[in-house]
Amino acid sequence: MIELQGLTRVFGERTAVDNLNLRVESGQICALIGTSGCGKSTTLKMINRLIEPTSGTVLINGEDIRDQQPELLRRRIGYAIQGVGLFPHRTVYDNIATVPRLLNWPAKQIDQRVHELLDLLKMDFDTFAYQYPHRLSGGEQQRIGVARALAARPELMLMDEPFGALDPLTRERLQGELKQIQRMLGITTILVTHDIEEAIRLADQIAVMDGGKLLQVASPAELLRNPREGFVSQLVGGEERALRLLSLRSVGDLAQPADQFELSDDTPCIDAGMSLRDALARQIWQRSAVLRVVDETGATCGAVSLQELINAGGRD
């Protein structure tokens, strides 16, 4: 668990972060979202003491971060940034091994950890371990950046627009992978982004910032249904709000027993793991108001109708 209490940072005349209070439960992803210069990156950097707060405290598992030397603190916190910041003069292996080496892990343990992490990110050890970063694609570099941040099993992970520089397809794939890995490791994560889609896709909790102030903290569904007036409404509103709401739930979640519908062999199918947004898109494309929901084995496990989708995505 991490708690920010009354966190404030003043640069000269300008208050970059103004009395910010935020609590992120263990194992959750919290997205800090806002426009450039809203103070979200400053907030992130105050957590690993790259920037010292003017006032206020940060507690990690109840422990004040000022009780520890900044370098030692940072080795306990994973840090991944936009543009990755991989060391160009070091191989993928050495990049990933950075923090374990700072912590003086034995070589054998480091070697094992590098294998583990490359496995986790679905990158072949023999192909990638001894490559230099510039040989990798943007997506691969970003994966290595994440592996490097995770290397020493940190308690907390900070990510500053980690997918900002990637093309949309790669970004979406990496977001999926990140979510999967985060769920698997149960690592508390704070993610800075300016992309509301990314926040909705990844976060358990979204904290909207503007002008150094925290405007609203809520789960994605809550934020979409009840945004506060002004900036938050602008951010999440618009015509796509319903679609974003649908993207939060899976088809399996909403499926009704199949016998309530008259399904024929021609009824289009959809995997239970897909989102409701995908279901709606498929209904429109297939000109069918009902979809057959199938599990991984291909067996029918229910059906979903257009009316359910309208109920799920429509306003209260």
Binding site: N48, L50, E71, L72, L73, R74, R75, Y79, I81, Q82, G83, V84, G85, L86, F87, P88, T98, V99, L102, R148, A149, L158
Partner: peptide
């Protein structure tokens, strides 16, 4: 030396 490389080094816990 690109600033983000130095920031990453610092952020990972190098003195």
């Amino acid at each position: 030396v690109r600033p983000e490389i130095k920031e990453a080094a610092k952020g990972l816990g190098m003195g």
